[in-house]
Design a protein around this nucleic acid. Structure first.
Lengths: 87, 87
DNA sequence: TAGATATTTAGATTGTTATCTAAATACAGA
DNA sequence: TCTGTATTTAGATAACAATCTAAATATCTA
């Protein structure tokens, strides 16, 4: 879960997640949304993938990224527990 | 809200919050729980305070820290929204 | 197969963060 | 007022993270 928290701590990565919420995107499309070079986005995607927050699938020469929110459940529970609103 | 995410991204700080959930503590008591020198804990407490996650009150020569979970609501909503379970 | 496009990898640079030691500040009690 | 205790501040160091350029890899299409 530490990986998830660390991944979420960066604003670019949070914005990537928001983009993917609207639908799957390839790396190029994601990059278009930021004032940043492609390798930097690749780096962020790698961290997100490592945290389990996104999944990737190769489709021809493109890499399609999709959101995976299941790992957020732990984070959610952690916060709820801290708030004393659960468990 | 970015400050909150950044504050939560560190494991020591998350543990501090967990400690404070059980009750208010002065800086010394918090420090006892970690294998770390006092100035480092002060540093973490400063970041937590900046994020609004803790409050502090001077009591004699001690500084009493307490948990404030109200700022977690935004984080919670952000996550729920990403999960598509709200808004 | 050659050239174009999409993405990633490698390596460098820069900025940020966590930690430490030493010193400063604030307060309490004799 | 002096001494001890609690906490923070200042400044240094080392590890980590974000970004870039250049190059490598993979795939598509003519």
């Amino acid at each position: 879960m530490a990986n998830v928290f660390r991944a979420l701590s960066d604003p670019t990565r949070r914005e990537i997640l928001k983009l993917l919420q609207k639908g799957n995107l390839n790396a190029g499309r994601i990059t278009e949304n930021f004032d940043m070079k492609a390798p930097s986005i690749t780096h962020h995607l790698h961290i997100l993938r490592n945290a389990g927050l996104v999944q990737s699938e190769k489709k021809g020469q493109q890499m399609i990224y999709s959101l995976n929110t299941t790992v957020l459940q732990d984070v959610l529970n952690w916060i709820l527990e801290l708030q004393g609103k659960s468990k």
